[in-house]
Design a protein around this nucleic acid. Structure first.
Lengths: 255, 255
DNA sequence: AAGTGGTCTAGACCACTGC
DNA sequence: CAGTGGTCTAGACCACTTA
């Protein structure tokens, strides 16, 4: 009697074994970026499992960010073409040459184009009020932006500024003029001098994934940037949400 | 005839509707951090669906980082107790007070304790060689560390240094003495002066998830830190892997 | 029309937990 | 032991894509 195929091959579940096999094929180049992987039916017959088990392998890889699925077409190996974002531009240009980067990045500049909403005066959220040391009765200016690369949204940003500083200034307009809001803050006597970025990474809510048109298995980076003027007053809080699969963040510093 | 329950309630799949309901209950506080959520069987009966559909709702929330599962016990609401890591300590202490942080963090210092492996001389990987501008014939010193908080691993780090600088020095010992490897590099005439951190976020491989004992639905942060001496030579490359659910990264800079 | 992914059912058996 | 999550089957039907 031939060796019976046990449902669980000594410890490892079938769907994990299939997933590991596909993972290995991607790593060794048998399956390459953007390529279609075997369909549910193919895996079902090749491995002698049910459709749901074959599918489970594919879905688990998708939820690990390895594959993406296109309804009616198949599962495909995901590609990683990140944008490099340097938070400390001036420092980096002066101090570092190029070339010693860990991950290869497109040399072609794919410009990130922002679309700005009409600025509004509003009440700050509890978090923003606490961060800016305001009360719930103070008003802030909110400037929302969405950034796209090649037509797809990759980042949203909401900038908050105290109304007692920016009321009646160009910062309340969509177009803030040369130098942007930082130049205007300088005009108003509150030039930003010190910055802090706090960065978290987590899975997006369904709404967030929808807004950034993200596939499953992709985390977001949640960044809060605060800017302080010479006197130490927080003059801007910027809350950003980034599709993590599209960015490499870069921070330079001397110590 | 009473309204038949259609399998898909006008567009939204049943498992998504159940997941959204649980999500809302967590958001409004009906279910709070660490608490058990209804079991597969409870959801099955309450919503009149099969076990697999009820389970699908729970699993999808787990893979979004909202729930965690404990075999034989149930699904539970995940809690978020991050560690704050400031890459630029000196700057931050001088320039910023406390209190204007976006996310609340434990005030109790939960110390992060490192365990260091015996340093080894080895050939650099292609990435490390390119980053340090070495050839594949050059040797590097590799220092591996794993950091734990309250007994659980939260971060791994591998530090690479050129052997032509560190051979025979205390850097090849486990204990490098007061000031650590940066002080020893200074002793050797290669004090690190400029730093760069490159940060990616992605889902971990099964091996990485295992090493950091991470639950499903948790991304990792992958950080590469390079340190250059006064002459501009890269004297250290440090590759870190962090459980993203346990960290808030903080970067301070001026202009 | 054929092939693909997406959802769902009604069972089954296993492994782990706590009483 | 009962209750829980974890895996699996053998179907079914739907929605989407391509030809």
């Amino acid at each position: 009697m031939p060796a019976e195929k046990t449902p669980q091959d000594r410890g490892q579940p079938a769907f994990q074994r299939i997933a590991a096999e596909l993972r290995a094929m991607i790593l060794d180049g048998t399956l390459s970026s953007g390529q279609k992987v075997p369909s549910e039916m193919e895996l079902k017959e090749r491995h002698g499992v049910s459709k749901m088990t074959a599918r489970n392998a594919l879905v688990s890889l998708r939820d690990q960010g390895v594959l993406e699925s296109r309804h009616g077409k198949g599962f495909f190996v995901r590609s990683f073409r990140p944008i490099r974002r340097n938070a400390t531009k001036r420092l980096s240009k002066e101090l570092w040459g190029g070339g010693q980067s860990m991950w290869s990045v497109d040399v072609h500049d794919r410009p990130m184009t922002p679309v700005t909403e009409v600025p509004v005066a509003t009440s700050p959220s509890i978090e923003v009020a606490r961060t800016m040391d305001l009360t719930s009765e103070d008003q802030v200016c909110k400037r929302s932006r969405i950034y796209t690369v090649e037509g797809v949204p990759v980042m949203t940003a909401a900038s908050y500024l105290p109304m007692d500083i920016v009321a009646g200034s160009p910062i309340m307009q969509i177009d803030t003029g040369a130098g942007g809001i930082y130049a205007r803050l300088a005009d108003l006597g509150h030039e930003p001098r010190r910055f802090r970025e706090e960065l978290r990474s987590r899975m997006p809510s369904p709404e967030e994934a929808d807004r950034l048109q993200m596939g499953a298995g992709t985390p977001v980076m949640h960044i809060v940037r605060t800017a302080a003027d010479e006197a130490g007053r927080i003059v801007e809080v910027n809350i950003m949400l980034l599709d993590a699969s599209r960015f490499i963040m870069e921070y330079d510093f001397t110590d």
